[in-house]
Each structure stands twice: as structure tokens, then as C-alpha cells.
């Protein structure tokens, strides 16, 4: 089998789409990548297989992208950033996990050797804003958190998920994760790939596949 074959890319894309269709059909609720590992045991057998097909197809495509990286400097960087960003995405469930917590105003909770506290909340036109702190080794980081504006620090990340009410007292639903470079790496790599793709299209010129038989395996000619 020729790993540079365009037909292989087509086959793997189709496999991803079929696996994706199956995941969409059998999943009961939307799961984020950070929760896949925790929820995987609860998945039905069909959903487990479909998820593995989706992940496996994406992994093979990322390896193929890294392998068929072309010759020119720009094309090499373009394919490497694409391949690496896909690999980073696949490894997110194994390297970055989040926890959901509920905090009343002026309360705190201990998670992963850190203290997370809510000093107060404000309601405004753009939803709720919470004044939070994360404390680790008696070192405190404070910040305001609202929808679209998380608290990102070396002690951890905090997001507001919503507000619930328990006994008529508002409790803020918070998502917490210890610091992880993986999502930042993914966003950086994929962002770089997007920019380079635009530059490559603007530059035009010779395509990376011509004259090398790449994408046109010997057996297919």
C-alpha cells in the first residue's frame, strides 16, 4: 500500500464521515473532548467502536499529512502544522481533563491541591460575571470570569458554565482544569496552519505534488 496515495486520504475521510455519522446517531448527549475519557466507559459498544474509528481515521490522516509534507519550505511547514495540530487534537482527551464544580457566592472548594473560591457575582447585560480566586501553596491568583472570558493562569483555568439555584441561593456552575499547554498548543498550531494556508494560496505557484509522483502511486498508473 502506498501511504502517499490520494485514494487512501479519500478512504480515510470517508471512514471518518461514516464513523462520525454513527457517533451522531448513537450518542445521547454532547460530550466535549475533555470528558470523552471519563464518559467512555458509559458509552454503548457501537458508540465506543464508532469513536475509535473516528479517532483512528483522524490519526492515520495526520500521519499521512506529516509523511506527505512536500518539498518547499512553506509546504513542509504547512503540512507539518496541519499534521501536528490533528495529533494534538487526538491526544487532548488523554492529556487535558476538566472538572465541573458548583460554588455559592463567598464559598470555596478544594480541587487538585488548589483552593478555588468565589468572592462575588454580578449580573449584567452580557450575563453573569464572577470574581474568583485560585490558591495554590498559599499563592493566590484572582480574576473576573464571564462567558467568553475565562481565568487562564499557571495555577489553572476557570470557566463559567451557568447559574443554578439551590434553595433560592444562586450557585455558579464552574469548569476547572489544572494548567495544560495542550489546548494552547492546538490553537497555536491550527492558527499557524490557517495563516500559512492563506499565504500558500496567495503565493500560488507550483503544487507540492507535481513531478514527484506523489498522490499518484506507481501501481495506479
Amino acid at each position: 500500500m502506498n501511504f502517499k496515495s490520494v485514494k487512501l486520504l479519500g478512504g480515510l475521510s470517508l471512514l471518518f464521515l461514516i464513523g462520525g455519522f454513527s457517533v451522531s446517531l448513537f450518542e445521547k448527549r454532547v460530550v466535549g473532548l475533555t470528558g470523552v475519557l471519563n464518559d467512555f466507559a458509559l458509552f454503548s459498544t457501537v458508540l465506543k467502536i464508532s469513536t475509535l474509528i473516528v479517532g483512528g481515521a483522524l490519526f492515520l490522516i495526520s500521519l499521512q499529512t506529516l509523511y506527505c509534507r512536500g518539498k518547499g519550505k512553506l509546504d513542509v511547514i504547512l503540512h507539518v502544522t496541519a499534521g501536528l495540530s490533528l495529533i494534538t487534537l487526538i491526544f487532548i482527551p488523554f492529556t487535558w481533563q476538566t472538572k465541573t464544580l458548583y460554588l455559592y457566592p463567598y464559598s470555596y472548594v478544594e480541587v487538585d491541591k488548589r483552593v478555588i473560591g468565589l468572592k462575588g457575582i454580578e449580573f449584567g447585560k452580557f450575563g453573569i460575571t464572577g470574581n474568583f480566586f485560585i490558591e495554590q501553596n498559599r499563592n493566590r491568583t484572582e480574576g473576573k470570569v464571564s462567558f467568553n472570558r475565562p481565568l487562564l493562569s499557571e495555577k489553572g483555568f476557570l470557566w463559567i458554565e451557568g447559574v443554578r439555584e439551590f434553595n433560592r441561593v444562586p450557585a455558579v456552575e464552574v469548569k476547572f482544569s489544572p494548567f495544560s499547554a495542550v489546548p494552547i498548543l492546538f490553537v497555536t498550531l491550527f492558527g499557524l496552519f490557517t495563516i500559512l494556508l492563506g499565504v500558500r494560496l496567495l503565493k500560488g505557484g507550483k503544487n507540492v505534488h507535481s513531478g514527484r509522483g506523489e498522490g499518484a502511486p506507481e501501481t495506479d498508473r
Partner: peptide
């Protein structure tokens, strides 16, 4: 920034990535 996720196993997100891979196949 909004939900603390970069990708969800949500039908539209999965199909979008699937279509993205397919469109890469089309121009290749």
C-alpha cells in the same frame, strides 16, 4: 474561551471536520 473545550462530539462539529477532510481530498 467560552466553554473550555476546543472540540465537542457534537454532530455539526464531527461532520464539519469530516467535510474538511473530504474537501482536502477533493482538491488533492
Amino acid at each position: 474561551l467560552a466553554w473550555g473545550e476546543v472540540f465537542m462530539l457534537d454532530p455539526k462539529s464531527i461532520f464539519s471536520v469530516g467535510f474538511w477532510l473530504f474537501s482536502a481530498f477533493v482538491f488533492h
